[in-house]
Amino acid sequence: MSSDHRIVVVGGGYTGVFSAIRLARRTRRTGVSITLVNPSGRFVERLRMHQIAAGQELADHRIPDLLDGTGVSFVEGTVTAVDPEARRVTVDGAETLAYDTLVYALGSSTDTGRVPGADTHAFTLDSPRTAGLLAARLTEVAASGGTLTVCGGGLTGVEAATEIAESHPGLHVTLISLDEPGSMMGAKARAHLHGALDRLGITRETGARVTKVLPDAVELADGRLVRSDACLWTTGVKASPLAADAGITTDDRGLIVVDATLRSVSHPEVHAIGDAAAVRLAWGRLHGTCQSGLPTAQHTADTIARLVRGKAAKPFRFGYFHQPVSLGRRDAVIQFTKADETPRGMHLTGRSAVVYKELVSGSPLKTYRFSKRMNVSTIVSKGGRATRRPVA
């Protein structure tokens, strides 16, 4: 690769920002130029959107400030097209940025298109704006003793339901899910989670499938209507269509299919990370979390640095380590896991879990700061023996 190699990172979320900062350090004195593109200058802490929904104010972190001192250029704008043949991206339908290497970190958003009414009558936690809209609505609903329905009993749904119930004692919160909340946890951790739901007065509709979202209710598959003065949709994700539209090979979810080094199988100059990448390891498929996203960003930054210096890329190795779940501001549960995310016997609850969870939620920003001066690893587990050989 030449010394004037151009790298463009699209997406300024957890993975995009980390990859840009680490790339800057790993490629210093090589003449590489790095540009990060994101629709907003604000850095969104997706791990904390449920706190905004509960009415809390978060610090306003700016991406240019996070990049300060790295030499990375920041372009505020929306990537509207990717042309992998010409190797350029279009920003806001007009400006074009040429690249030699593209880091695709556009991530995912909540899929509200599969159930009628979800796109028009439900709120999401996709951004500070949407979470803020829900917070404003909940203030009105709580004042009248109304009901919030949280659709989706995954970790996002559980964190949102508990955070909101704790902040609005007069609000009735109903958690609707197909699976039992905390079903991926061990029995003891799951019992603690359900104890927190009981303590906060959260009603559960388990084994229920939502078929329609109405202005004042959600309709279940069995025909029942559950009152809903406000509805929060947390189930299902969708990827940006840009990669598929560009002719880059994607899977049935729209994620870029990558090889063992996280490079696109159809366009090797494109590296996909985080929620944008379809990553399969020996133990199974990665799913979109910050826990797995930051390691993909770290690996990709290191891979590009190796390629710039004429070295060979190495396969990505990773294993899950924990499932941290906040249960309001004063309680949490941490389930430690094996590499494939099945539960181990160890877990934390109560105050120690609250401290642990806060360390996890705040760790990306600390990682960015330290990564300007040293190589900070975000990989706790490489997955053991199972990941020593890449999946064919």
Rank of each mutant, 00 (worst) to 15 (best):
S127L: 11
L23S: 13
A217Y: 03
A246P: 01
A53N: 01
T206F: 00
P295N: 06
A217Q: 02
V44N: 09
Y356K: 07
R26L: 15
A94Y: 13
T303Q: 10
G132T: 08
A86Q: 15
G154Y: 03
A332D: 00
G11V: 11
H267C: 08
F123L: 08
V44P: 07
K238Q: 14
A297H: 07
E341G: 00
V270A: 03
A189W: 10
T367R: 06
A165N: 02
S228G: 00
R42Q: 14
R22F: 11
G310F: 03
A221D: 14
S363G: 01
V258L: 04
R306F: 05
V333L: 10
D340E: 02
H322I: 13
T30P: 03
R253K: 11
I164C: 08
P324H: 09
S352H: 13
A81Y: 11
T15Q: 15
L102D: 03
R129A: 15
S109H: 15
V91D: 06
H271K: 02
M185Q: 08
A282C: 02
V391F: 07
L171I: 06
G384D: 01
L262Q: 02
A305E: 01
S183M: 10
D245F: 07
R373A: 14
T234V: 08
L348E: 03
A81V: 08
T234S: 04
G254V: 01
S361P: 02
R253H: 10
L197V: 12
L175G: 07
V89G: 07
G195K: 09
I7K: 04
V237G: 05
S363Q: 07
D119G: 15
P343H: 08
H271V: 14
D65H: 15
A339Q: 00
V257M: 01
P315F: 03
